Amino acid sequence: MQTERMALLNAHVAAENAHRMAETLATLHQDCLFEDMATGQVFHGRAGAEAHYRQWWDAFGLTFSRGAEDRGHWTEDGSYVGQGRFEGRHVGTFLGIPPTGKLVSYRFCVFVGFRDGLMAGERFYYDLAGLLRQVDAADWRPEAAA
């Protein structure tokens, strides 16, 4: 089962890095759940997942990479815990912050569950304050995005 799930994860990352929305969404269960623990945002279903990806792709054109130190782990319940790095350039509005053109690079950790042979969603953690410093928005407050 881990082999099939790893193949699914690899297909997901390839589609995500190429910003191919239909292929990215095809790896997700229709009732998927995305939880951005840093911003407090929660996205439900494939429509929510699309909004999540659009937010990051449009704002930063992000791509994901894994270094040698970024090994993933399978849990006893079959979930995957991974880490990696996102890199991009701030080219669109993010959380109400206008684009700065600055390069961004940040590490994150993600927990991925599975359901019916697809990804059931992601819960991810990263240093939002560090990302905001990279775009000169260290004084950003959540109410600014409302």
Rank of each mutant, 00 (worst) to 15 (best):
M37L: 14
F64G: 00
A49R: 04
G72M: 01
D31I: 09
T24G: 02
A146K: 15
F60I: 01
E23S: 13
T75W: 05
A59Y: 02
A129M: 13
P99V: 05
R115T: 07
T27S: 13
H29E: 13
G101R: 08
L132Q: 04
A47E: 12
A11N: 11
G113Y: 01
R107E: 06
W56G: 01
G101A: 09
G45I: 08
G78V: 07
R133G: 14
H90P: 13
R66A: 12
H52G: 09
W57S: 11
W56V: 02
V81N: 02
G92L: 04
Q83P: 06
A15S: 13
A18V: 09
G113Q: 04
F108A: 13
D70A: 06
W74K: 04
H19P: 12
G130V: 01
F114Y: 03
G130R: 02
V104A: 11
T63P: 06
A14S: 14
Q55N: 14
A47C: 09
R133L: 03
G82Q: 04
H19A: 10
M1K: 05
T39M: 07
V112P: 00
Q30L: 12
T63D: 02
G113D: 11
M119H: 06
R5T: 06
M6S: 14
G67D: 07
A146M: 15
E122Y: 07
H73A: 12
Y53L: 05
L128T: 04
A144M: 14
T63E: 09
G45K: 11
A51Q: 10
R123E: 10
E50P: 15
Q55G: 14
G92A: 05
F114Q: 02
W140F: 04
H44I: 11
E69R: 01
T3L: 03
E4I: 03
E87H: 14
F60R: 00
A68D: 12
Q134I: 00
D77I: 05
G88E: 01
V104T: 10
A68E: 11
T93Q: 13
R123W: 05
V104H: 06
Y106C: 05
W56P: 00
L25N: 10
R133I: 01
V135E: 04
T63S: 10
L8W: 03
F64W: 09
